[in-house]
């Protein structure tokens, strides 16, 4: 069966899998971003810098764990289906966002925070007006790698019943049907590229201008 024939015959199914993949991604990204940034904010509070440093080294090492290992562990402890897949995506996606946000906030120069406090910023103002805006490029870098990782991991998570475009790739591999495989691979690749570009644009948009100017 050739590629075009396959696409025209399974048009609706492909669209459905695409949407499924996208929503799997979107839901996991929103959760990881919120939870990840919250954890980073907590871990970088004044006096907790050591927790922050530990988190940076732990997440730094955890990035070396292959995504399939996390999926496998979730399979063992939670089981099969969509919820386990989402859990795996969230757990694995949290790693880069926490790593980046925590190290980003920790690297905001001490004197800027001191100046802010000395001028009468409240703790909240120090966080939202100084730490976060200055760390935005690094945090956005984390969100971008998390997004890429979630889309990629979602493909693999189809082995534990996560659904999405991974279904096509696994079916294609197992049944040796190149057309199916290509559609799954190409669509997930395109989706990843488009989403990364959108996030790169958002990054550009929300990075404070003063951090971008040249001397």
């Amino acid at each position: 069966m050739n590629l075009f024939q396959y696409i025209s015959e399974n048009y609706n199914k492909i669209i459905d899998l695409c949407m499924e993949h996208f929503f799997l991604f979107l839901f996991s990204l929103i959760i990881t971003t919120i939870v990840g940034i919250a954890i980073s904010i907590f871990a970088t509070e004044e006096g907790k810098e050591n927790i922050g440093k530990i988190i940076v080294s732990v997440t730094g090492a955890a990035q070396a764990v292959p995504s399939i290992a996390v999926i496998a562990l979730v399979f063992i402890f939670v089981g099969i289906g969509k919820p386990p897949a989402i859990i795996a995506l969230i757990v694995y996606g949290l790693v880069p966002i926490i790593f980046n946000s925590t190290s980003g906030i920790l690297s905001v120069p001490r004197e800027i925070i001191e100046a802010g406090k000395g001028m009468g910023f409240t703790k909240r103002q120090v966080l939202w007006k100084l730490k976060i805006p200055i760390a935005i490029p690094v945090i956005m870098g984390g969100i971008r790698s998390t997004a890429t990782i979630i889309i990629g991991t979602a493909v693999i998570a189809s082995v534990i019943g996560g659904g999405g475009l991974g279904d096509l790739i696994f079916v294609g591999l197992k049944l040796n049907r190149p057309s199916v495989l290509i559609v799954g691979a190409a669509l997930s690749a395109i989706m990843a590229i488009i989403i990364d570009h959108i996030l790169a644009y958002i990054e550009k948009l929300i990075t404070p201008k003063g951090l971008k100017v040249k001397r």
């Binding site: 120069p109 800027i112 925070i113 100046a115 802010g116 200055i134 951090l211």
Partner: peptide, 14 residues
């Protein structure tokens, strides 16, 4: 109510 200047200045870059 108190002005504060430090050596590193700590101007807010953004």
């Amino acid at each position: 109510t108190i002005g504060y200047v430090i050596q590193e200045i700590g101007l807010f870059p953004h």
